Lab assay of single mutants.
Amino acid sequence: DESNKPILLPNESQSFERSVQLLDQIPSYDTHKIAVLYVGEGQSNSELAILSNEHGSYRYTEFLTGLGRLIELKDCQPDKVYLGGLDVCGEDGQFTYCWHDDIMQAVFHIATLMPTKDVDKHRCDKKRHLGNDFVSIVYNDSGEDFKLGTIKGQFNFVHVIVTPLDYECNLVSLQCRKDMEGLVDTSVAKIVSDRNLPFVARQMALHANMASQVHHSRSNPTDIYPSKWIARLRHIKRLRQRICEEAAYSNPSLPLVHPPSHSKAPAQTPAEPTPGYEVGQRKRLISSVEDFTE
């Protein structure tokens, strides 16, 4: 099969070098950035008060330690540790928490760990991170309901609301924008112990962030949302095809390698009803078989 044979790379090609550099910018793992907010007593309706908090309760602090690993920003190499735009020179604080497994990295933009500057009256330095995160974990210690939209931002799609209760338990629920209701189930609340709260809140936030990324990708319907490693695979396959075309153009005697095509017509299947918005969006999480067989 010609399409699977190794090909020689061009010795000097600026377009090839640019493509390789672009490939280096696509990590081999999925990345997520999640905002974390603490809401104190009497702050449920005040964005400024929430963003001005420099610490929270003892249970909130224990919750943070379970979310991930504490890292010092100045020691991080952005090409190895995903920071979601946090500055490593102290502009966004000294520490944050991050978490990773074999296929993804997540960083938490924690408002109480970011510096509260006197010259920044409206807390814009914090909002440029927190307001651009799709998902926020809100530790609501106010005793009042927290409403979506209290923290203004164009991309605040989903809130994971943590409400501490007695007996070391917590109520965990989801809020989302109306255009996200087909992807996020907000109907079920959970009672979770303090011990298990970081794991549950983190998983709910990661799932909500993946759904938000799919939702946000609708602005470019021709580019369905893939995982990062599938995006790398697609980029490599496009690069291979372009090299083959350039080689055939410079030397017409060489065969032009095309991806294999299936001449056999697909079997006719009964027509199915058109899937609704929710089903269609969830299918976009699934990769096409052509990603692996071309």
Score class of each variant (00 low, 15 high):
106 A>H: 02
86 L>H: 14
190 K>V: 15
81 V>K: 13
217 S>T: 11
252 P>Y: 10
286 I>E: 14
132 N>T: 15
222 T>H: 09
121 K>Q: 14
194 D>T: 01
30 D>G: 05
41 E>Y: 12
101 D>E: 12
203 Q>A: 03
135 V>N: 00
43 Q>F: 01
194 D>P: 00
141 D>P: 00
87 D>S: 13
143 G>L: 03
277 Y>G: 15
284 R>V: 12
62 E>H: 05
253 S>L: 06
193 S>W: 01
20 V>A: 07
243 I>A: 07
42 G>A: 04
89 C>E: 13
134 F>W: 06
257 V>W: 10
240 R>N: 13
35 A>H: 02
244 C>A: 11
114 M>Q: 05
270 P>V: 12
155 F>H: 11
61 T>V: 07
184 V>Y: 05
55 H>F: 15
97 Y>T: 04
288 S>C: 07
193 S>V: 01
2 E>P: 05
210 M>Q: 02
47 E>W: 03
255 P>G: 12
68 G>F: 03
272 E>S: 09
36 V>Y: 00
256 L>D: 15
170 N>A: 07
18 R>P: 09
117 K>D: 09
109 H>P: 02
40 G>Y: 00
149 G>I: 02
62 E>Q: 09
11 N>W: 05
2 E>V: 08
184 V>E: 03
275 P>A: 13
289 V>Y: 11
187 S>E: 07
77 Q>S: 11
214 V>C: 07
86 L>S: 14
5 K>H: 13
94 Q>H: 07
148 L>Y: 14
33 K>D: 14
27 P>K: 05
186 T>F: 04
273 P>Y: 07
255 P>S: 10
224 I>E: 07
36 V>T: 01
206 L>C: 04
150 T>H: 03
124 C>L: 15
234 R>W: 04
266 P>T: 12
222 T>A: 09
178 K>V: 13
49 A>P: 02
201 A>C: 08
49 A>I: 02
150 T>Q: 03
264 K>E: 15
155 F>Y: 11
181 E>K: 06
138 V>I: 07
159 H>K: 02
230 I>V: 14
3 S>R: 08
80 K>H: 05
244 C>W: 14
261 S>V: 15
36 V>L: 02
228 K>F: 05
203 Q>K: 01
34 I>D: 00
14 Q>T: 10
198 P>H: 01
99 W>K: 02
84 G>C: 11
178 K>M: 06
239 L>M: 15
160 V>R: 01
76 C>G: 14
289 V>S: 13
196 N>L: 01
47 E>F: 02
166 D>N: 03
214 V>D: 01
9 L>S: 12
278 E>I: 06
231 A>L: 10
278 E>G: 15
144 E>A: 07
70 L>D: 10
223 D>F: 07
139 Y>S: 00
224 I>H: 10
153 G>I: 03
108 F>N: 01
266 P>Q: 14
134 F>N: 03
1 D>L: 13
114 M>C: 06
19 S>Y: 15
201 A>F: 00
65 T>G: 12
45 N>H: 06
133 D>K: 03
274 T>F: 11
37 L>R: 01
164 P>N: 01
94 Q>F: 13
15 S>Y: 14
247 A>T: 14
32 H>Q: 03
260 P>Y: 12
231 A>I: 06
23 L>Q: 08
161 I>F: 01
239 L>F: 09
198 P>C: 02
261 S>W: 08
264 K>C: 11
10 P>K: 08
253 S>C: 08
225 Y>H: 14
26 I>A: 05
129 H>T: 12
85 G>W: 02
53 N>A: 02
10 P>N: 15
285 L>D: 15
54 E>D: 08
106 A>P: 02
99 W>V: 02
100 H>K: 15
91 E>V: 06
249 Y>F: 09
257 V>F: 12
12 E>Y: 07
48 L>G: 09
127 K>M: 15
17 E>A: 10
241 Q>V: 04
196 N>Q: 04
22 L>Q: 15
67 L>T: 00
193 S>F: 01
43 Q>H: 02
17 E>M: 09
271 A>N: 10
51 L>N: 03
170 N>C: 05
43 Q>N: 02
148 L>V: 15
61 T>W: 06
120 D>C: 09
184 V>I: 07
293 T>G: 13
84 G>S: 14
187 S>T: 12
96 T>S: 07
200 V>F: 06
230 I>P: 12
103 I>N: 13
107 V>W: 08
208 A>G: 03
9 L>R: 09
226 P>E: 10
92 D>R: 10
150 T>Y: 03
99 W>Y: 11
133 D>T: 09
90 G>H: 09
254 L>I: 09
140 N>V: 00
6 P>L: 04
166 D>M: 04
120 D>G: 14
158 V>K: 01
86 L>A: 15
77 Q>V: 11
238 R>N: 11
278 E>N: 12
70 L>T: 05
100 H>S: 14
224 I>M: 08
104 M>H: 12
214 V>S: 03
210 M>H: 02
21 Q>V: 05
243 I>F: 12
52 S>I: 01
158 V>N: 01
101 D>W: 00
274 T>E: 12
143 G>N: 03
266 P>C: 11
263 S>Q: 10
5 K>L: 15
106 A>F: 07
162 V>C: 09
243 I>V: 13
131 G>Y: 15
130 L>E: 05
12 E>M: 09
227 S>F: 11
26 I>L: 12
151 I>A: 02
130 L>D: 05
92 D>N: 09
130 L>W: 03
43 Q>C: 02
105 Q>W: 13
65 T>V: 05
175 Q>I: 06
258 H>P: 13
240 R>W: 07
233 L>P: 14
274 T>R: 10
150 T>N: 03
242 R>K: 12
72 E>R: 08
88 V>A: 09
91 E>F: 10
240 R>M: 04
150 T>P: 03
38 Y>D: 01
263 S>V: 08
269 T>N: 12
105 Q>H: 13
24 D>T: 03
69 R>A: 15
200 V>E: 02
280 G>C: 13
43 Q>V: 02
266 P>G: 11
218 R>W: 07
247 A>S: 08
18 R>H: 12
68 G>D: 02
172 V>L: 06
210 M>I: 10
21 Q>H: 09
120 D>N: 14
56 G>D: 01
215 H>K: 07
226 P>M: 05
41 E>C: 05
18 R>Q: 13
8 L>H: 09
27 P>Y: 05
240 R>H: 11
150 T>I: 08
17 E>F: 07
127 K>P: 04
269 T>K: 08
269 T>S: 10
116 T>C: 11
90 G>W: 04
41 E>H: 06
118 D>P: 12
42 G>Q: 03
52 S>L: 04
89 C>H: 08
209 N>A: 11
189 A>Y: 10
128 R>A: 09
271 A>F: 11
123 R>W: 13
11 N>K: 07
91 E>L: 11
198 P>D: 00
84 G>K: 12
2 E>F: 13
140 N>F: 00
213 Q>E: 06
172 V>F: 00
75 D>E: 10
254 L>V: 13
91 E>A: 12
32 H>N: 04
67 L>C: 00
98 C>A: 11
243 I>W: 13
76 C>F: 10
141 D>M: 01
73 L>C: 10
143 G>D: 03
67 L>S: 00
